[in-house]
Design a protein around this nucleic acid. Structure first.
Length: 944
RNA sequence: GCCCAGAUGGUGGAAUUGGUAGACACGAGGGACUUAAAAUCCCUUGGCCAGUGAUGGCCGUACGGGUUCGAUUCCCGUUCCGGGCACCA
């Protein structure tokens, strides 16, 4: 009987929908398992074969867990806000919602063909008001919270107000933008507006004037993870630094918890490392330096407090407020000129061209340990955003300071015994300290580091600094607060209106605040974000409704926020929403949260390491502090599926002709390689007729063939339209079936590894499924008998159960598929058509190839879905061998093998070896030194 | 520059974590069936050498060392490819 995959797959896909096979409900009786894929952005190009890789891998796991008796949640949805739909809208005027809906419909159609076990009743879309209701809600909660360092959690802002009313800022340990100091009386004396401004300094979602990454080409600001090498991640446009008032999220408050949490989750080491780098914890010392002949004092941050005796100059970041204070009248002209130069330089200039630049401020600082006067310089190599924006320069032991000192001829004092600093600085934190202080000099309180190791010196200095109140020990993080405003249309609107210039929250019960209609998706003529084009975008505080802008009176009707939220807003808590997607009273009910807890297995690309995966961990920790999420980490285990690259094909055109030469002969001509659509190439052989039809300019093409064929060249490249190497899963499904596609994608290699797609190999997977199908048939009759299985058959089956079970647990599907092939071949040869063997086989293959499994399961007389079957367990007793093949090696050199009874003990085997029973010709007169027996594997006889 | 991961046939990749390297699949070559094609099935397929032959020998997991009876696997050094961070003091 022919394996008619088209009919089978269609039938079961329809039946799964009709019978709601994959609908999941909370069931306290059963253990839960939550499998999640990073939801896709539905782009206009549709899915290519690379996209489903992770979905297939997680689907196999989800189905496997279900067969093991778990109540599995395996949802899917769409990250529907995004730039492409908005840019398409700008070009065509078509509303992004329409484009997005169309793209989603197309995605859904493609996904449905692959046979996933998604519970579509839980689908979410980030652009759906019912969904972004809770994105807006979370934002308001962040606005209404501050971060308490003492209790290490977010707390309601009301607690902070209470604290201010009782004791002002005294005894306050909260994360803040700048350190404020006032008494309770002073607080009470403040106006409402002033109080609001003070609170803004502490809120977790706060409005602040900060340096932002401004991308003029995109007309919006970008978060740090959206800027790569000084250009925008999307589009590669230049990015400049600009001071703007923006909403920010106080992610940095969670830096330590984000770091600590990594220890509790099961992610790859490299991904954790990436996040550690991004968080960038560094432990050091903040020290105060006085400015000579002035009352001014400033603070620097250093991880090398031990090098204090080697400081020969100080450096300020050009953007630092100290620059204005410390510049002397004589130096003002030079400094202004330098600042103008720095301002001209974009982020990209700084990265590509690292020349040494700087200017002397005219002021001197006093080394607190020695009283020495040290010149204060200004240079762009010091960053305003990190530490305090000011450093102490130790040219002998920091390569940047070294370059600077050499360039401007500043002194260099070596501090490590024996370190050669004639060519470069000695940056390593090792060696014995000297010159601290230098001979003949004395330091404050006779402090000396001479003779200590660097580690000891760092500790000693920290202690001294703390005791003498010269500064304090400080931990710095590279992780910055996230800029949360975007000057775009297609994003979540902020539920915020402005009264007297201060932001006010739209009442919680009025959420969601729906995105308004606009006639143009571009920024306004006055440079306001696209929402500035909306005519009805004002908040009436009397009626609590959105009203026409013309009614704004700044008394009861106020303008609404014009920015929208960034892409990561909607994707930061979607995994929680899947647990309870239709709840309109809360983001998630307590009951659903407590049942589903967090994601057990999360599958997605590693490109989100410093974006989504940081933000959603932060977001979840915040919700954890609020008591909304019961788990501090959202994703317990994370698997990064590798990208599937394209395999491009090339044809070689002889220069200035329309003649194409085959790969093997191309070196004889002067040729230009051109990409050719991989869909008209099969096994690297070009379909010449299809090629002529492909492009009008090729209609008259001529060919120089080898062996009557045109052979194309190939290369592995990113899968993209412009390389003509996109392979569409629909085409594969049409030609081979979804089960073949699923099997082949897994067979291609380890899920985590990047690998090129090569359609050529797919025949093997398809052939296997045919063989599997044929095991159940004799001609046109379906034959499954109730005969008792033989030991050989049982062995084949149990070997397979063992292998597949172990493989799935560790995501090693690529090695399970050969096991299926081997077992199928063995059983076909044994002509086994016994239910006791074939039934478990069908269950085993169900996660991989669900359609064929369902069909066979039904044919075997079952009335329920194979999804509700039970995963077979293997029995070791069928795997035990009667005899064990032992390899015999002499001095490690393998010679032959001998069968021993399986229960032979090592003493018996060794006796056989020593008794020269193992072919004496290799031993003869030589003496046996040692016999090493590797259990059930090898006898190594060491001879003289 | 720093950190992380990796390198195995013509190709994708296996190898029970120290025990017969190259499973399985693709591709290639040969054969069977067929008027023919498709489909299906069988054999060969890391390199070199010897033999009519079954077969036997040597080399071989990027390169050079080391530990071990035995190394793709562990250690040290080198080269190359990929990823992350990058004037972060």
């Amino acid at each position: 009987m022919e394996y008619n995959f088209r009919e089978i797959e269609k039938k079961w896909q329809q039946r799964w929908v009709a019978q709601q096979t994959y609908r999941t409900t909370e069931n306290p009786e059963r253990k839960k398992f939550y499998v999640l894929n990073m939801f896709p952005y539905p782009s206009g190009a549709g899915l290519h074969v690379g996209h489903p890789l992770g979905y297939i891998a997680s689907d196999i796991y989800a189905r496997y867990k279900r067969l093991q008796g778990f109540n599995v949640l395996n949802p899917m949805g769409y990250d529907a806000y995004g730039l492409p739909a908005e840019q398409y809208a700008i070009q065509t005027g078509q509303h992004p919602a329409i484009t997005t809906d169309q793209n989603i419909a197309r995605y859904r159609e493609q996904l449905d063909k692959i046979g996933f076990s998604f519970d579509w009743s839980r689908e979410v879309r980030t652009c759906d008001p019912k969904y972004y209701h809770w994105t807006q809600w979370a934002f308001q909660q962040m606005f209404g919270s501050f971060y308490c360092n003492k209790c290490q959690s977010a707390q309601p802002i009301e607690k902070l107000i209470e604290h201010f009313e009782k004791q002002g800022t005294a005894d306050l340990d909260a994360v803040q933008n700048e350190e404020l100091s006032f008494t309770a009386d002073e607080w009470r004396a403040k106006s409402d507006n002033e109080k609001q401004q003070v609170l803004m300094n502490y809120r977790i979602a706060y409005l602040a004037e900060t340096m932002v990454n401004w991308c003029p080409a995109l007309g919006t600001v970008l978060a740090n993870d959206e800027v790569v090498n000084g250009v925008s991640e999307r589009g590669g446009y230049p990015v400049e630094q600009k001071r703007m008032k923006q909403w920010c999220l106080r992610v940095s408050a969670y830096a330590q918890r984000l770091l600590d949490g990594l220890e509790t989750i099961d992610w790859t080491e490299s991904l954790k490392e990436t996040q550690r780098n991004w968080i960038g914890r560094s432990e050091g010392t903040e020290m105060q330096f006085k400015v000579a002949d002035s009352d001014i004092e400033f603070t620097i941050f250093t991880t090398r407090a031990d090098t204090i005796f080697g400081v020969t100059f100080m450096v300020l970041a050009p953007e630092s407020e100290l620059v204005a204070q410390l510049t002397t009248p004589e130096q003002k002209a030079a400094v202004d000129e330098y600042l103008a130069y720095v301002k001209k330089r974009t982020e990209r200039d700084r990265i590509s061209d690292r020349k040494v630049t700087g200017v002397f401020s005219g002021s001197y600082a006093i080394n607190p340990f020695t009283g020495d006067k040290i010149p204060v310089w200004i240079s762009e190599y010091v960053l305003a955003g990190y530490g305090t924006g000011a450093i102490m320069a130790v040219p002998a032991h920091d390569s940047r300071d070294y370059a600077f000192a050499r360039h401007f001829n500043l002194p260099i004092i070596p501090l490590i015994e024996g370190a050669d600093i004639s060519e470069e600085s000695f940056d390593a934190k090792e060696g014995i300290v000297m010159n601290s202080p230098a001979t003949g000099k004395t330091a404050l309180d006779g402090f000396s580091l001479n003779g200590l190791t660097v580690k000891e010196a760092i500790a000693a200095t920290k202690q001294f600094v703390t005791e003498h109140k010269l500064g304090r020990v400080k931990v710095n993080y590279r992780l910055r607060d996230a800029i949360f405003s975007r000057q775009r249309y297609w994003g979540e609107p902020f539920p915020v209106y402005y009264k007297d210039g201060m932001p006010q929250m739209v009442p919680q019960e009025c959420l969601p605040l729906e995105l308004p209609e606009v006639d143009k998706f571009l920024p306004t003529e006055t440079g306001e974000p696209p929402l500035g084009n909306a005519k009805k975008w004002a908040w009436d505080t009397k009626t609590n409704t959105i009203v026409d802008n013309s009614l704004i009176d700044n008394d009861t009707v106020f303008p609404l926020e014009l920015n929208t939220m960034p892409g990561f807003a909607g994707s930061s808590a979607y995994y929680l929403r899947y647990m309870d997607p239709h709840n309109d009273q809360a983001l998630i009910s307590k009951k659903a949260d407590e049942y589903w807890q967090n994601v057990d297995l999360y599958v997605g690309g590693s490109e989100h390491a410093t974006g989504h995966l940081i933000y959603s961990r932060f977001w979840n920790k915040f919700l954890f502090d609020l008591g909304v999420s019961c788990k501090e980490e959202p994703f317990q285990k994370l698997v990064n599926q590798g990208m599937i690259q394209g395999r491009s094909n090339f044809v070689y055109r002889i220069k200035d002709t329309n003649t194409f030469v085959s790969l093997g002969l191309k070196d004889q001509y002067d040729v230009t390689p051109l990409h050719v659509d991989v869909n008209i190439v099969s096994g690297d052989v070009l379909d010449i007729e299809a090629f002529k039809a492909w492009r009008p300019e090729y209609a008259t093409a001529e060919f120089i063939l080898e062996d009557g064929k045109y052979i194309c060249g190939w290369a592995v490249e990113k899968m993209s339209k412009s390389m003509f190497n996109v392979v569409n899963p629909d085409m594969i499904v049409e030609k081979f079936g979804a089960d073949t596609l699923r099997l082949y994608e897994m067979f291609l290699g380890p899920v985590e590894q990047a690998k090129p797609w090569d359609t050529n190999g797919i025949d093997g997977s398809h052939r296997f499924l045919k063989k599997f199908w044929n095991m159940f048939w004799q001609k046109d009759d379906f034959v499954v008998t109730d005969d008792a299985p033989t030991p050989a058959e049982l062995k084949s089956l149990h070997k397979l159960i063992k292998k597949v079970t172990e493989d799935i647990e560790v995501f090693s599907y690529n090695t399970s598929i050969p096991a299926f092939m081997i077992a199928t071949n063995e059983l076909t040869q044994l002509k086994c058509q016994k239910r006791a063997i074939l039934e478990p086989m069908v269950v085993l293959i169900a996660p991989f190839a669900p359609h064929i499994a369902e069909e066979l399961w039904e044919k075997m007389g079952h009335t329920t879905s194979v999804c509700d079957a039970q995963w077979p367990t293997f029995n070791e007793k069928y795997l035990v061998e009667d005899t064990v093949k032992m390899m015999v090696a002499f001095n490690g050199k393998t010679r032959f093998s001998i069968d021993f009874p399986a229960d032979a003990d090592n003493a018996t085997i060794e006796a056989a070896a020593r008794g020269h029973e193992l072919t004496p010709k290799y031993v003869e007169d030589k003496q046996i030194m040692k016999v090493i027996i590797v259990p059930k594997r090898m006898i190594n006889i060491v001879i003289k």
